[in-house]
């Protein structure tokens, strides 16, 4: 505008650099190598391949199938056990047990937390219970469980419920407590109360914490299940994955032991990396609530 015209031309010129320095690389396409290196999955797969090679080489060098079977032996054992339907059946048994134990634990945790947020004694009770039982490894209760429920799956379900309930309850409770005052007031402003308030405001608002609790609970229960099955496998006909591992060790089929361990890992990774991940993508990531 008019201001511009009043500035002498010379003055404008003197403030400018004579020849502006332009960096040579402003923007260029990444090379194929750089692009591939930026894919985390690819980097991890490469590492896994290296580790597999190292395993194979070490096992071949050791040449002692009783200590460390080779990767190829393990793979052969795995496919044999899958073909004979033994491994799938054992896996199915384990999964069925964990389903019952896990849902039981989550349900109990939910009830305890609802009780805790609605009443003062409930809060105190939850705090006492979680403080006492959260540090207690579930597997330590197995001897007692065997005494109470006998040699059978009820005992294992009992210890799984113990493994799940406390971390899940702790996280749900922390989630409920962390719901912002503003969101609570919005809920009250809409005259939501009781269960409607819990389901329409508290649970979704606390969902990131709830999901974390469910994930931790799953990891605890899976470990507890396998460990419990190792200790306990008298009614071997219907044993789970843990029992499969124990049994194969006794028969000195060490490549089957490795195959069993691999199955435990694969299922763990699948549930965490696929099931929970996809729940996360559909909820907290989409809502921008992931912490």
């Amino acid at each position: 505008m008019s201001n511009k015209e009043t500035i002498p031309f010379d003055l404008l010129k003197t403030n400018c650099a004579e020849t502006p320095q332009i960096p040579e690389e402003i923007k260029r396409k990444l090379s194929l190598w750089e692009k591939l290196y930026n894919v985390p999955a690819l980097r991890k797969i490469t590492l896994l391949v290296f580790l597999a090679f190292a395993w194979q080489l070490y096992a071949a060098y050791l040449d002692n199938a009783l200590m460390v079977p080779t990767l190829t032996d393990t793979a052969r054992g795995f496919f044999e056990a899958v073909k004979s339907a033994e491994l799938p059946l054992r896996t199915l048994t384990s999964l069925r047990v964990i389903c019952i134990g896990y849902s039981g634990g989550v349900l109990l945790a939910g009830l305890l937390t609802v009780f805790a947020i609605t009443t003062k004694p409930g809060t105190d009770l939850l705090e006492i219970f979680t403080a006492m039982f959260n540090p207690l490894p579930a597997i330590a209760l197995l001897p007692l469980a065997l005494l109470w429920f006998g040699l059978g799956y009820p005992s294992i379900i009992f210890v799984i419920i113990h493994a799940v309930t406390w971390p899940v309850a702790l996280n749900i409770y922390a989630g409920f407590m962390g719901v912002s005052t503003t969101l609570r007031m919005v809920g009250k402003n809409y005259e939501l109360a009781g269960f409607r308030f819990v389901f329409k405001i508290l649970i979704p608002a606390a969902f990131p914490h709830i999901l974390t609790g469910l994930k931790i609970g799953w990891a605890f229960s899976w470990r507890t299940l396998i460990a419990a099955e190792l200790v306990f496998g008298v009614s071997s006909g219907s044993g789970g994955l843990g029992w499969f591992i124990y049994e194969k060790k006794n028969q000195l089929d060490i490549n089957f032991v490795f195959a069993g361990l691999l199955t435990v890992i694969i299922i763990g990774v699948f549930i965490e990396g696929m099931v929970f991940k996809s729940i996360e993508e559909r909820t907290v990531v989409k809502w921008g609530m992931k912490f």
Partner: peptide, 17 residues
């Protein structure tokens, strides 16, 4: 009550989900 609508200062008043 819903007969008094409220707008808060905080940006987190919308339900993020």
């Amino acid at each position: 009550g819903a007969d008094r609508a409220i707008v808060f200062q905080e940006f987190d008043q919308l339900l993020p989900w």
